[in-house]
Amino acid sequence: MAVINVDALVGEKTDQQLWQRIRKGDEQAFTVIFEKYHRTLYNYGSKLSQNSAIVEDAVQDVFIDIWRLRNNLTDNVISVKFYLYRALRRRIHLARDKFPVTEEITLLHDTETPANTGNSETSLIDIESASLRAKQVQNLMSQLPGRQVEALTLRYFDDFSIEEIAGIMGVSEKSVRNFIYKALTSLRHNRGILLISSLIFCLLGLF
């Protein structure tokens, strides 16, 4: 299984190599990068704007810019993936200039862990059914504020580190941790409702 780590290294190196080739005008390298990242970029963009046309345009523009400005691309980009995500976020930000930057940051500092952590933790663990958990997470996503969903996406789906996420979102690492923490806390509250509704469902089934 250690192989996977080696793969990750190789993958990183390949991105770098592709980047160097793009700088020299290699279309094939450019195609590979597009193919590799455009879907996850679109996925991320969809968390920033509900408007799929805006997201598509932004993804396109990120790649068009790279090709257009390839002669001036920075030589030693640390992570191509990170560069792409940050560029996409700026693009979408430009497209909808009233992108909320301050709205949720002010909310961040207040709430702390709810008092009844112990109890809800236990019952959260007790949810046995995988489908119930899946439903619960799905419900949660539809209710969370945008930036929490954004942070969760970058962390869990795109596998960025907290530091990278902070860089992409343009906030402090503490804020990123807060986004994620608050989202996970909502998971706990959300759970109660689901459990009750499924209980009612079961009871109805009895009659």
Binding site: Y42, N43, V137, L152, T153, F157
Partner: peptide
């Protein structure tokens, strides 16, 4: 979480 946040692919 990984699965659900990756639902919006084109």
């Amino acid at each position: 979480l990984a699965k659900d946040t990756g639902r919006d692919q084109p």
